Simulated scan of single mutants.
Amino acid sequence: MTAVTLSPALAPARRLGVTAGLRHTFTLAWRSLVQIKHNPMELLDLSIQPVMFVLLFTYVFGTAIAGSSGEYLTFMLPGIMVQNALFATMTTGFGLNNDLTKGVFDRLRALPIARWAPLAGRILADTVKQAWSIALLLGVGSILGFRVGNGVLGVVGAFALLLAFTLAASWISVLVGVLVSEPDKVQIFGFMVIFPLTFTSNIFVPTDRMPGWLQNWVEVNPVTVVADALRGLLVGGPVAGPVLQTLLWGAGIAVVFAPLAVRGLKRRV
């Protein structure tokens, strides 16, 4: 008789360390960035729309609202940066939902990588795109006549603050991305929530020029807080109060939505 030899049971895979997880995160983030060359419209959406907003509002409404297009550009550009950053967070939920519906996450789970790396890689890649969009707006604004009043430190502080806030706000997009069934529904959420949220702030019009009943909401609107913080850092004015409020808003959003998003993702995959 021929003896049948049973292969020994495979040893369970060891738990991956933080260093390996970070390496996987950077690899997947690079994957998301490289995809831009196959889908350039993704980057164009982050470039053309904000530039169009800057040009249209500066030269169509600038004189009527602020008396001159130059003064209005100084007031409006930091707010446009906030609006564009919030809309850009929707790309995180859109891309995440696209990966979920197409089975990309299922294939990634079969690989020996950290379980949190796919989500972290997506968020990291979108943060890089955010930085590109902020730099583009500042560059276009400088060509049109926008001048930074607080030097290099003000620019660096504005970059860091806006990226930190949008990083926290992206958890809302992640939650929407794991809850809806189609990527297009993430964009619908953006237009239904972010669009009115930004237009009922002081991004385009000073608060004191709005109806009294609306001013109460505008003053507590987190978009107003972030816009005021960027104006203080880039142009001049109060900085400590708006920056602290922005950080508190970001921390509050992350504390509420990050656990819900992670829980939803675990249920989805």
Rank of each mutant, 00 (worst) to 15 (best):
A258L: 14
R109V: 08
P78V: 08
L28F: 09
W30S: 14
V178D: 02
I134E: 01
K185T: 15
L43S: 08
V18Q: 05
M52V: 15
G149K: 04
M90Q: 13
R267C: 04
A117L: 10
E182R: 15
G264T: 01
F165S: 08
Q83M: 10
G264M: 02
E71Q: 13
L247I: 10
F195V: 07
V54E: 08
L265Y: 14
A11Q: 12
V220D: 07
A64P: 00
S181C: 00
I48N: 04
P118W: 09
L137W: 03
P118V: 01
L33N: 06
M76H: 10
V60G: 06
L6T: 14
D208G: 09
L138I: 00
D184Q: 15
L111C: 12
T101C: 00
I80P: 02
V193T: 12
V226G: 08
D184F: 14
F195I: 07
L214W: 12
T198P: 06
V225A: 11
G212A: 02
G250W: 05
E71D: 14
T127N: 09
M210Y: 11
P78R: 06
N39T: 15
G237R: 02
G190E: 01
L55E: 09
V60F: 15
V176C: 04
V178P: 03
T91L: 12
L86W: 11
V128F: 15
L119E: 07
T224L: 06
S133V: 01
P242S: 08
E71C: 00
A135T: 07
W217K: 07
Q245C: 11
R31M: 06
A110F: 07
A229T: 03
V174E: 04
F204P: 02
L28W: 06
F94C: 01
V104M: 12
F105P: 00
S201E: 06
G157V: 03
P112H: 12
T200D: 04
G145E: 08
S142L: 14
P259V: 03
Q83D: 02
T207L: 12
L260D: 03
M90H: 00
P50V: 07
P183L: 09
V128Y: 02
S133M: 13
I36L: 15
V104F: 12
P183Q: 13
L6C: 00
F199D: 01
L179R: 12
A20L: 09
G141R: 05
L44T: 02
N202H: 03
K37M: 12
V226Y: 03
M52Y: 08
A158R: 08
A114V: 00
F61H: 00
G212K: 02
L247D: 10
E219Y: 08
P238E: 14
P8H: 11
G145H: 11
L28A: 07
V152Y: 07
N84K: 06
V256T: 10
S181R: 15
S142R: 11
V218E: 11
V269T: 05
E71Y: 04
R209K: 15
V239Y: 02
W30I: 06
A120I: 01
K185H: 13
I172Q: 10
